[in-house]
Nucleic acid binder design. Structure first.
Lengths: 124, 124
DNA sequence: CTTGACATACGAATTACTTAGTACTATAAG
DNA sequence: CTTATAGTACTAAGTAATTCGTATGTCAAG
């Protein structure tokens, strides 16, 4: 049986980013961070974090009265999975057409090219 | 007022890919193409294509008894928009961390690097 | 002219995603 | 002890995405 939710939904991702930033976070921490950008209810954040725990993206531990959440997986791994899913879905699994787009939209320029070159060297 | 649907949903994308391939297509064409991969009802495809027309991704024209659909926008433009949305949402708008992932997962190797280099040269 | 094949129109059910309200509990302050 | 506060649990409701059934219309073959 294949897992139902392969990747994070947009709102889930938004929350996960904040938790990764902090390494550990309570509902209140995330609630306040989100509130700085948009109107949202405390219980909405709680629900989302509970869902993230159910899906295996967050682990929780009770500390005093509240739960403290922490990421179950490193950011790189999860984001990498999202990227792979995107490439599969949009570019049929090959990165090259993606690169063509990045070059044509000037997302990649000389500067980024140097970065890639350097990273490839390090891998050798 | 900002448009409601910025990007194509997974199923919408699947259909758009097939229409782009063919340039023009009827519901039956797409239905048969999809059916080769999975169970799906004819009316499901019809509904999806009607939605795509409502959203402005497809244009239709009646030919004999059936509608003939064609893309309203070139593939590059739409896919480019999806890529931009993804980079914004997942990588906060910068392509460099994306490149880091591509290198580390070996999606980019020497071969792809040459491709980028060549494309950048051509743009100069 | 009746019937079968094939098309659209319309409506609706299901599931996923997002948001949030209400009830209840425990702790800390007075 | 009472009460305000801060937390969780549970429930529900709205919207988007996906799927498909039924009704209806048209054309062509017999």
């Amino acid at each position: 049986m294949r897992p139902k939710h392969t990747t994070l939904t947009p709102q889930e991702l938004e929350i996960m980013k904040l938790v990764w930033q902090r390494d550990t976070a309570t509902v209140r921490d995330i609630y306040e961070a989100l509130l700085a950008h948009r109107k949202i209810a405390y219980t909405t954040v709680m629900t989302m974090m509970k869902i993230l725990e159910t899906k295996g993206y967050l682990k929780k531990r009770r500390q005093d009265r509240a739960f403290v959440y922490r990421p179950a997986h490193p950011k790189n791994q999860v984001i990498g999975g999202m990227l792979r899913e995107f490439i599969d879905r949009v570019f049929n699994g090959s990165a090259e057409p993606l690169l063509v787009h990045l070059v044509k939209t000037r997302h990649i320029r000389e500067k980024e090219l140097q970065t890639i070159k350097r990273m490839l060297e390090e891998l050798k």
